[in-house]
Amino acid sequence: NIFRVLGDFSHLASIFILLHKIQQLKSCSGISFKSQVLYMLVYITRYLDLPWTSSPYNFIFKVLFISSELYIIYLMARAYKPTNDPNLDTFHVEFLLGFAGLLALLFPYKYTILEVFWAFSIWLESVAILPQLFMLQRTGEAEAMTAHYIAALGMYRALYIPNWIYRYFSEPTHKVDTIAVTAGILQTILYSDFFWIYYTKVMRGEKFKLP
């Protein structure tokens, strides 16, 4: 459905915006390395089923997400390492890993390796933006491209919400993926005040600056 496709393309767009920003400005300043590593962990743990992916659409996206994230990490850790300031990236990710690990172990759909890792990836994704938002809060402002990146990434999970509603009514099974929906709503809520500032400032051509 249209929400699902727009969501996935918004996710892909966010990555291209980030890569464009890094290469254009030859800098990864303002980007949280910790958030990027968490996204890498999200892709690895969610796409363990990559070799058995039957849908070409999903297969292509999975390969694109994993490879582009690897490339971003390479750029941040090697090529543009001097522009990456760890002193601004101080969020304690062990809380996020603990939160996702605990929920994945307590409420997986099934106690299989793939299912527990899948649930872990869903919960971890829901909070993986926090080091990035924390960094924004510390610096107080962001380049337009960084703001566009976060907005496109937030739009992705926000668009999955109407996708789930659409699927609930359009599919005969009426199934609700409780883990994905709960985590997806949490994820969207975490972006809400970012979205507000993005809407009131960046979309009107002003700088992203926290009040």
Binding site: R4, D8, H11, R46, D49, W52, T53, S54, S55, N58, F61, K62, F65, Y109, L114, W118, Y160, N163, D177, A180
Partner: peptide, 10 residues
């Protein structure tokens, strides 16, 4: 393939 049917979203 069964896994894909369970989690058919990205």
């Amino acid at each position: 393939a069964a896994k894909e049917a369970d989690h058919d979203e990205l």
